[in-house]
Write a protein that binds this DNA or RNA. Structure first.
Lengths: 337, 337
DNA sequence: CTGTTAGCGCTTTCAA
DNA sequence: TTGAAAGCGCTAACAG
């Protein structure tokens, strides 16, 4: 494979001149540029970014560390990240942690070794070690989707508390008083915030503690099934379920139907996260939709501004609003209320 | 940031010895290893893979170039790729081309510059130039999801023709004779193969050309809407629609319902690609499901075997079977038949 | 506007 | 089992 020297020889210039043409930095006459460009074309020269990175100490790699790209919510985030990064000449590495702190830390290590320019991190747990490790090694991080108490880092998330508040208020407005929360893992800020929103809405309505039911599990369909099972076996049975994410909602729906109950006639169901329009066969679930693409975009913009070096301001926190989308699963006002 | 020299000095050995400890290549006494390892820990040394790659001329980066990660089919492939690559110490870069050849070529260029070890490519069009460019630059490629006539490259796909055959036979068995194919772009092998399967099934049943209706568009929901519109405005109206992918199916379903028709009572609908279980609120669409995760896994295994150098066999072609999943949208046997 | 020199941090090659 | 020397391909720093 030809190197910058081969190009230089062919064009009758010094290697550094070729470098200047490629990187578009520094002056260079139109004629020289043309000579160099044709030499590049003739040789089929492909600049070696590995060498360039070693010398310049900067790579054009960003990393997106998330829990599971299989969840459309994260897929949309990923797309927002990639589109934005790509527009600025960055390439994105992505890593699925499956909510495992061990996997997360293994990946962080690899990313540091590769000297990625910056990292977008959806933390596997409410742990600041990964963020600190990156920062100690001078790698800018933007934390995404989930807050991290104690970490001094940029943060982009959606308003989990507000979204939960809207959903639970909606249910209360429909006459529900026994509302079960099928939540994600405690310690994950999205789960904690949705729990807080749940309680706040119930407090507002003066619904007493003993009518509340909070169950914790993973953000998976299986967990949704299991949590719904627990909720249904409770006496008295809740009249509405609030699922803390899309997978839990679907698992819960599945279980409720298998148990012979109809949604929303027998029990109402609302959840977090919407599915992209192109994936919904029948619009059914009432949800608080998070602006996932926008979150990925904003987070990447923030990261890029940190990379460019002209943004030394203190850590910023961007909270985007959720959107309440009312469909059938939340049902009609309860007759009995 | 400390370098290998700092570690060497601290451990009282030569840099090359540190290198041997890190890469686990070459002999090294247990005692030396221990000294080096503690020096690494004390300094918080993170090996620089950029330098390592430059010297050794090998990176641990793979690239996955696909059309749109937003499609769960590709998301599942991506997950299969990442899990497999990650097990072998590789990190994955991913790139969305949005079916644009220009974007694809732009990405290939960037990947070559980064000297990625290998590429998994879902071609944006039936064009071999990207594959050739990679191969000319000694970068192994495995083509995924879509065939590329004329390219001498490994290929992993699912049996589009067989899947189409099964779906159309199913419809014919239910009594349908006017079946419209809402297809993807001509020139993309998946679309061409599904078309071939469509015709083969109709040929078997002796259904004449004039009863066939083939419409081409993009693999998007909007396109599905539009193609369904065209199909419905045809006289006589088809009694069944065969959508060539999941997005087209949903767009078509949307349009059919908006037009006041019921699926499957008024018109049957079948499609390609299933959605992951965790995303389906109501199982409804009859589909030929492709083993997406498995495809990503197999393609990556093939690529890795090429990278390891001990697999110099001629290009291989792996075709995985699709699975027919019969649900409601295909309907009951037609009374009139 | 263009060139010379040196060196980024690592591993290959050869030697002990 | 360990080390010395050299160089991967590029660009920072400085010079003209």
């Amino acid at each position: 494979m030809p190197t910058i020297h081969d190009v230089a020889r062919r064009a009758g210039v010094a290697p550094i001149t070729v470098s200047r043409v490629i990187t578009r930095r520094g002056y260079c006459s139109a004629q020289t540029r043309r000579k160099v460009e044709s030499a590049i074309a003739e040789l089929g020269y492909v600049p070696n970014r590995v060498a360039s990175s070693l010398r310049s100490k900067r790579t054009s790699l960003l990393a997106l560390v998330l829990t599971d790209i299989t969840n459309p919510y994260f897929t949309q985030i990923a797309r927002g990240v990639e589109d934005t990064a790509s527009d600025s000449g960055y390439t994105v590495i992505y890593c699925n942690t499956d909510e495992s702190l061990l996997e997360e830390q293994r990946y962080i290590q690899v990313l540091l070794q590769n000297r990625v320019a910056g990292v977008l991190l959806v933390p596997a747990a409410g742990e600041t070690r990964s963020v600190e490790l990156l920062q100690n090694n001078h790698t800018p991080v933007v934390v995404l989707d989930r807050g991290l108490t104690g970490a001094r880092a940029d943060l982009v998330l959606s308003d989990s508390l507000g979204g939960a508040l809207q959903l639970v208020r909606l249910l209360i407005g429909l006459g529900h008083r026994r509302i079960a929360l099928l939540n994600g893992p405690p310690g994950i800020s999205t789960a904690d915030d949705r729990l807080a929103g749940y309680h706040q809405a119930l407090d507002e309505a003066g619904i007493p503690q003993e009518m509340r039911l909070v169950l914790h599990g993973g953000y998976t369909q299986e967990s949704g099934c299991e949590l719904a099972r627990q909720a249904l076996s409770h006496h008295p049975r809740p009249s509405a379920l609030f699922a803390a994410n899309n997978f839990i909602a679907i698992g819960a729906l599945r279980h409720v139907q298998d148990a012979g109950l109809r949604v929303p006639a027998d029990i109402a169901l609302v959840g977090f996260d919407d599915l992209p329009d192109a994936l919904i066969t029948f619009p059914f679930l009432t949800v608080a939709s998070q602006p996932a693409y926008e979150m990925g975009k904003r987070a990447t913009e923030l990261l890029l501004s940190r990379l460019s070096g002209d943004d030394e301001s203190p850590p910023r926190q961007i909270v985007l609003p959720t959107e309440l989308i009312i469909r059938q699963s939340s049902g009609q006002p309860l007759a009995s209320s």
